[in-house]
Simulated scan of single mutants.
Amino acid sequence: VVEAAASLPLPPGARLLDAGTGSGCILLGLLQRLPGAIGLGIDQDPAAVQAASANAATCGFAERGQVQLLQFQQLGQLPSMGFGPLDLAVSNPPYLAEKVCDHVGFARDLQTQSRKAFASGEDGNDAYEELAASLAEPGVLAPGAWVVMGCQPGHTGRAAKPFLASGRYERAHEEFERCADAVGILSWSYPCGALACAFALKLAARQPRVIATDLPEVVPLMVQNAGANKALVECASLPWGDLAAAKALAVAAPAVVVACEVAYWGGWDLFADDTRVPLADTLAALLIGEDTGVRIGLLVFTIRDESRELALLPMLRERGLEVVQVSPLPVEGE
């Protein structure tokens, strides 16, 4: 969505809307790519509004990016709120049918997120229909404005249908596929190699180079699992703090480094040592390279003691890494 929208011929100082902003990642990505643009993110979930507002402040976009508690059907209120007309409206809305979220695979997601973040009516089209109607209300869109919608792969027709059926929109681009032909992904410290196998299989058409790393004694298990799943995954040893090994892997210039369940601060029975410092050192070695390409690190870990786990973030900043998004913490006890 960001790549498609940022490539459009927009006027200087464009006004843009991210409908269903969630954590604000699309809104903030566009503000970064479009200097001078002014953005508004809306969401019906108060927790999302709080998280997106905090992320805007963290990224230095609080003055150019506002976040409001608003539903899709209320977009007609934007002119009276003093925002608009819009030059660009984007959304990656919920697009699954309600029955899909009844699947057991969604049980864990629904513990921390609203069902409305995934499902959109019986056929999954409600959000597109609401957006098509509300964006067309007087004063919301400027003449010649652009609308960019995210959707399930292969379902662009379903997403576009309510817009085209209204007779108020023209179809400019059927689909954007701006990902590089070859994607470098490094999966770190997920012992059985499952995450790396998933990346390799899901992105097989793009021929990614996927590297799974962990402690030396875990490498044989990862090799075995990669073979069993017929996944093209390279397996390598990378203990935390082994900067020489990290530098050697960084030569491969991974575009994405994914690290799961890696923040341990000591004082509990799984790890006696504080691993935050070697973790930060190793991430810096992996993500800061001599090339000019953007590298992205995604850390996912359980919050057991907020003050201790989140102390990792300033450690990353001290080493020259930019922390651009922090997802909202789960409710205590979840």
Rank of each mutant, 00 (worst) to 15 (best):
I211Q: 06
A117H: 05
E175R: 14
A127T: 04
M149K: 07
C192W: 03
T156P: 01
E217N: 03
G154H: 01
E137M: 15
E122V: 13
A145G: 01
K116Q: 13
E130P: 01
P143L: 08
S134V: 08
F176I: 08
K161T: 10
K230W: 14
S187K: 12
C179G: 09
L110Y: 10
F163R: 11
H173S: 08
Y128G: 00
S166Y: 09
A198V: 11
Q152S: 11
A132Q: 00
N229W: 03
L131F: 07
R178K: 07
V183L: 14
P220T: 13
C151P: 01
H103A: 15
A132M: 08
P191V: 09
E170M: 06
F118L: 15
P143D: 14
K202R: 15
E129M: 08
E122Y: 05
V223F: 08
P208D: 07
L186D: 03
G184W: 11
V218H: 03
Q113K: 09
V210Y: 04
F199G: 02
A212M: 01
Q207F: 08
R158C: 04
D214E: 14
S120Y: 09
F163D: 05
A127G: 13
R178D: 10
G157A: 12
K161F: 14
A132G: 00
K230A: 15
E130G: 02
V218G: 00
V219L: 03
N229I: 01
A133Y: 10
A97E: 13
S187G: 09
R171N: 01
C179V: 02
I211Y: 05
D123N: 05
E170R: 13
E174V: 11
L203E: 07
E175T: 11
L195S: 14
R178A: 15
S166E: 01
S120F: 14
A198L: 08
L221I: 09
V147R: 14
A165P: 10
G157L: 05
G139W: 10
W188L: 13
G193K: 02
C101H: 03
W146N: 03
K202E: 15
F118C: 05
A228P: 07
M222P: 00
V147P: 02
Q111D: 08
A205D: 14
D126G: 00
F118S: 09
Q111W: 00
V147H: 13
V104D: 12
A119H: 01
G184T: 10
V210N: 08
F163E: 07
A132T: 04
K230I: 08
P208R: 08
E137G: 11
V147G: 06
H103Q: 15
E98T: 06
A196R: 06
S189E: 14
E129Y: 00
L131N: 05
C151A: 07
S166M: 04
A133T: 07
D181Y: 13
E130Y: 04
A107Y: 06
F199V: 07
L186A: 07
R178M: 14
Q113P: 01
P162S: 12
K161M: 09
I185N: 03
A117Q: 02
R209K: 10
